[in-house]
């Protein structure tokens, strides 16, 4: 066709900013709500389990506490298929490159939960071997304190994270798409 390229006239939202055209606000808000609802209730965790918190992770995934009610029970043991990385337990300096690599292998959108004080800040291991908080190497969305945290705390964290996901602006097409 010799006419002007129609695609150039439709404003595409740049990453992180709402579209400038007010006519599209209604559509994008509704889209965000729908996408947010879908994403928050279909979290596929990648349980990066290392230590004692893993016991509580097993408990929270099981019958009595049950993360399946929140849609967040089915673990995907490959980062390619998961969107919530739950870093469960202490991350040592030896393990840090592995953690970073797994995080980078995940696709957008992705969220990170620091499960337990060791993942949050190194816990009470303040020595040469332990990474003092995973946020030193990867960005974290929600921190769950506790050594180990009670399953109810983890569920509370998942619910807060779900609220945040629901209220996020979900970029479907990035500016550089």
């Amino acid at each position: 066709m010799n006419g002007p390229d129609k695609r150039a006239t439709i404003p595409i939202a740049a990453a992180g900013s709402p579209p400038k055209n007010p006519v599209f606000d209604v559509f994008t808000t509704k889209k965000d709500e729908v996408v947010g609802w879908a994403r928050k209730f279909s979290l596929f965790p990648y349980p990066f389990v290392t230590a004692c918190c893993g016991m509580e992770f097993m408990s929270v995934s099981s019958t009595i506490y049950d993360t399946d009610r929140f849609g967040a029970a089915l673990p995907r043991f490959t980062p390619r298929q998961s969107d919530l990385m739950m870093v469960v337990g202490t991350i040592t300096h030896k393990q840090a490159p592995v953690l970073q690599r797994i995080y980078e292998q995940m696709c957008e959108p992705k969220w990170v939960m620091a499960f337990g004080v060791c993942a949050t800040s190194g816990g009470f291991y303040n020595n040469y071997a332990v990474l003092q908080g995973i946020d030193k190497v990867i960005p974290v969305d929600i921190y769950v304190p506790g050594c180990p945290p009670r399953p109810e705390m983890v569920i509370d964290a998942i619910m807060q994270l779900q609220e945040r996901i629901a209220n996020e602006h979900h970029v479907i097409l990035k500016g550089d798409f």
């Binding site: 300096h93 030896k94 840090a96 490159p97 303040n126 071997a129 030193k136 190497v137 960005p139 602006h169």
Partner: peptide
Amino acid sequence: DYDKHHEQPLVPYRDTADRGTQGGPR
């Protein structure tokens, strides 16, 4: 004589100023 706190990280630490954990994309 090895200082307990002397860490030797393998991964360079990220700039934690741009954490972006308070709502909005990172």
